[in-house]
């Protein structure tokens, strides 16, 4: 359950940063990204996947807890 710092880059894409791992990556897709709901499975540009409990859309930048989804799962 890494803490993930999320922010929007100037192009409006979600940037994913895990301090402990120096992982800084743009998110390719977010499962739920609507006006009411945000979260679910997030796929990063390097192919790794993380899962966020769906919540009402937060105010970025923000630090949230994520679950690592094993890349070999599906």
């Amino acid at each position: 359950m890494p803490s993930v710092m999320l922010k929007k880059n100037p192009e409006g894409k979600l940037v994913f940063y895990v301090p402990k791992k120096d992982l800084e990556e743009v998110a390719e897709s977010v499962e739920f990204d609507t006006a009411e709901l945000w979260g679910g499975e997030v796929v990063l540009a390097d192919g790794s996947k993380y899962y966020f409990e769906p919540i009402t859309p937060p105010d970025f930048p923000i630090t949230l807890r994520a679950k690592r989804v094993d890349s070999g799962e599906d």
Binding site: M5, K7, Y17, P19, P61, I62, T63
Partner: peptide
């Protein structure tokens, strides 16, 4: 960078 990221989050 740590403090800059913190200020980005807390103080925007």
């Amino acid at each position: 960078n740590y403090i800059a990221r913190h200020m980005e989050e807390k103080y925007k």
